[in-house]
């Protein structure tokens, strides 16, 4: 269903390989000028969905429109070269036989002001001094900036980024991510970023679409999805989660950690709580728990405790905990996430 300011509208799209349904009736909307994160585990169909938007794959059901023009329906597909999309690939896919400037200018064949445009683009990604270099001489971050400049060259309606950070690691990753977001914002281009990393997705995206087993399971802002997931799968995609058995009766979910209001119908359910929302109590009150393991992770300690028969994980700044020790933990009721069983 196309909304007026939508630059990309994906409606009930399916993609099937033999018996495997890679994308299952997926809906997705990218608003003009915004960055949409498409988050899912590997094999969830997110990259396939991105490739159908790029025109690199056909679709078996539904439709895709870019900037108001229908570009994909089953059996008919506008080829990628005729769509106004730019794509940044997981491995960057820079052409090894061309220089940085030639890579960036690749899509500008026949444009009158090709050289000038290449210079402007390289300036924007701060690589003017490397224009004559070949891709293999660049760092990972530089390669990614070339890939972005190349994708931006044809003034696409939308930029599609497929796992843009998976080949980078550590501190470089955060730096490159910030650079990329800045460059995307500067260009004013709408973008879809596919990633399996919740942190990348939440930091970069204005809106998030979560995928699991080929289906879109929830869409919203990062904050909304993190605090109000509608399924266990959605809650888990956005970060580690403790799951506790619960029973719903008349709009209240009850568990050993406490109770919380819910719209779920009566019967068995889950209550989820994030390890970061659990902390040792300093008030002398709370739920009694016994420490079963302590792992020091620098910025926090990963502490496993048992409450009754329920095992829980805490991420806490308290480092003076010992295995076997009993402690009281705070369970903030507003952080309990009622979730359906199936």
């Amino acid at each position: 269903m196309a909304t007026p300011d939508a630059i990309v509208s994906v409606t009930a799209v399916s993609r099937v390989y033999g018996r495997k349904i890679a994308v299952d009736r997926a809906d997705l909307t990218l608003a003009r000028g915004r960055i949409l994160g498409l988050l899912g585990a590997s094999g969830s169909g997110k990259s396939t969905l991105l490739r159908t938007i790029a025109g690199l794959e056909g679709i078996d059901a539904g439709s895709i429109a870019i900037d108001g023009q229908v570009v994909s329906i089953p059996g008919r597909s506008v080829p990628p070269e005729a769509r106004r999309v730019g794509m940044v690939f997981q491995d960057f896919a820079l052409f090894p036989h061309l220089t940085v400037a030639q890579n960036v200018g690749f899509g500008l064949k026949g444009y009158p002001d090709r050289q000038a445009k290449v210079i402007t683009l390289l300036d924007r990604v701060r690589l003017s001094d490397r224009s004559a270099a070949f891709p293999h001489t660049l760092s990972g971050g530089e390669q990614q900036r070339v890939a972005l400049a190349r994708a931006l060259a044809r003034d696409p309606a939308v930029i599609l980024l497929d796992e843009p950070f998976s080949s980078l690691d550590g501190s470089l990753r955060a730096e490159v991510r910030d650079d990329l977001v800045q460059a995307l914002r500067d260009s004013g281009t709408s973008a879809i970023v596919v990633t399996h990393d919740a942190e990348d997705a939440m930091i970069m995206a204005d809106d998030l679409t979560l995928m699991d087993a080929g289906r879109v399971i929830q869409t919203g802002t990062p904050q909304d999805l993190y605090t109000q997931p509608t399924s266990v799968a959605a809650a888990r995609l956005l970060g580690p989660l403790n799951l506790i058995e619960a029973q719903v009766r008349q709009g209240v979910a009850m568990s050993i950690l406490g109770r919380v209001a819910t719209h779920l119908s009566d019967g068995p359910a889950w209550i989820g709580i994030r390890p970061t929302d659990l902390a040792p109590s300093d008030q002398g009150s709370g739920t009694s728990a016994r420490v079963t393991s302590v792992g020091y992770a620098g910025a926090y300690s990963a502490v496993k405790v048992v409450v009754g028969l329920q095992h829980l994980l805490l991420h806490t700044h308290t480092s003076r905990l010992a295995v076997g020790e009993t402690l009281l933990i705070d369970v903030p009721a507003d952080r309990l996430l009622p979730l359906p069983r199936s």
């Binding site: 490739r51 790029a54 730019g86």
Partner: peptide, 10 residues
């Protein structure tokens, strides 16, 4: 992906 890149670049 290099071939796909060339395709998306026209």
């Amino acid at each position: 992906s290099m071939v796909a890149a060339a395709r998306t670049l026209g």
